[in-house]
Simulated scan of single mutants.
Amino acid sequence: MTLASLAFFTFTASFGAAQGAETPDTLDETIRPAGESTLDEFLWVKRPLVVFADNPADPRYVQQMQLISERLDALEDRDVVVITDTDPAADSPIRHELRARGFMFVLIAKDGTILLRKPAPWDVREISRSIDKQPLRKQEVRDRRALPDQ
């Protein structure tokens, strides 16, 4: 068994139990399966980063999830929720809305605008740069700096 396979099986085992168990209470989870979630749940609250694949063993999916897991703190700091969908047969509302085919990831702004749609894995550093260029993110950083130290 390769290291990638081991990481994949560990990853899917921890999230497989949560499949289909999404409720508004799980909005705080940073990585979650798509299930019956809709993008409207995250409007003005989180920046969805949706990672699609037709199979959880897709090497591009495994690589993307490894890249995300290595720098999850950078995404959490930017109010990102990672939504995974590796079951085309389930036709989740998010998969249907974004018309996903094969591997791809989609980064969506808090206002619902699609910022990125990529057919290959991307490093979290590049994803973070794309978020940091957005006016709302710049305002969030300014607001955070204006707060007194706590």
Score class of each variant (00 low, 15 high):
residue 100 A to F: 01
residue 147 L to H: 12
residue 68 I to F: 00
residue 42 F to V: 01
residue 60 R to L: 14
residue 129 R to C: 12
residue 114 I to R: 05
residue 119 P to L: 10
residue 83 I to S: 07
residue 29 E to Y: 12
residue 64 Q to V: 06
residue 128 S to V: 14
residue 67 L to R: 02
residue 55 N to K: 08
residue 115 L to T: 08
residue 68 I to R: 00
residue 19 Q to P: 07
residue 74 A to Y: 08
residue 92 S to I: 12
residue 134 Q to A: 11
residue 4 A to G: 09
residue 4 A to P: 10
residue 137 R to N: 14
residue 46 K to W: 03
residue 57 A to G: 09
residue 125 R to V: 12
residue 120 A to F: 10
residue 69 S to Q: 06
residue 130 S to H: 13
residue 13 A to V: 07
residue 91 D to F: 04
residue 67 L to Y: 04
residue 73 D to N: 08
residue 126 E to L: 15
residue 75 L to I: 09
residue 41 E to V: 04
residue 5 S to M: 05
residue 50 V to Y: 01
residue 57 A to S: 08
residue 27 L to D: 15
residue 66 Q to Y: 03
residue 83 I to T: 00
residue 106 V to A: 00
residue 17 A to F: 05
residue 33 P to M: 08
residue 99 R to S: 13
residue 128 S to L: 10
residue 118 K to N: 13
residue 49 L to I: 04
residue 110 K to N: 06
residue 65 M to W: 03
residue 82 V to D: 03
residue 105 F to G: 00
residue 70 E to C: 00
residue 67 L to V: 04
residue 1 M to H: 03
residue 100 A to W: 07
residue 108 I to L: 04
residue 96 H to M: 02
residue 87 D to R: 03
residue 28 D to A: 11
residue 43 L to D: 01
residue 60 R to N: 14
residue 64 Q to M: 07
residue 111 D to I: 10
residue 37 S to D: 09
residue 93 P to M: 05
residue 114 I to K: 08
residue 81 V to S: 10
residue 123 D to R: 09
residue 41 E to W: 01
residue 43 L to R: 03
residue 86 T to E: 04
residue 29 E to T: 09
residue 18 A to N: 08
residue 144 R to C: 08
residue 98 L to A: 06
residue 21 A to D: 02
residue 26 T to S: 14
residue 108 I to G: 02
residue 79 D to A: 13
residue 105 F to Q: 05
residue 118 K to F: 14
residue 54 D to N: 15
residue 79 D to G: 07
residue 32 R to I: 13
residue 104 M to L: 05
residue 123 D to N: 14
residue 69 S to F: 05
residue 57 A to W: 00
residue 135 P to Y: 14
residue 24 P to S: 15
residue 24 P to Y: 11
residue 18 A to P: 03
residue 138 K to I: 04
residue 129 R to Q: 15
residue 20 G to F: 03
residue 115 L to C: 06
residue 54 D to P: 08
residue 33 P to W: 01
residue 101 R to S: 11
residue 114 I to W: 06
residue 119 P to V: 02
residue 30 T to C: 12
residue 122 W to V: 06
